[in-house]
Amino acid sequence: MNSFLQIGLGHFVALSLLVLAAGVATVLTKRNAIGILIGVELILNAAGINLVAFNALAWPTSAEAGAAVSAAAGALGQPALDGMVFTIFLIVLAAAEAAVALAIFLNFYNNFNSIDVEKANAMRG
């Protein structure tokens, strides 16, 4: 990161932190269950940006070998895709989670005729 205009890892991490903060704020402020789910998707995307950016810019080769000899990194060949593979599974998990969550929301809606999470107060103490 020599200059501000040159785009580096720091920019990606800052972006992901901003999106994370937006996601957390969404989760905390929304009363609509689907709104909360949207906030969760934001957090997951922030994580995805982190994973891909770190993988592409900082750890393109396997860490065990690459970190020590960064000069010869290109020669080591074997690309490491840990972060990107994680991202693929993250997308799968997000889809799975959304499916279960929406089924539960629908079920809740059928029983309560609303998806206002503040209506979920039959049980207390």
Binding site: G23, I36, A53, F86
Partner: peptide, 16 residues
């Protein structure tokens, strides 16, 4: 969902 999303974000930082 919120807890696991935050955990995944934590993992992304640890990996990075």
């Amino acid at each position: 969902a919120v807890a696991s999303a935050l955990m995944i974000y934590g993992c992304s930082l640890l990996y990075g």
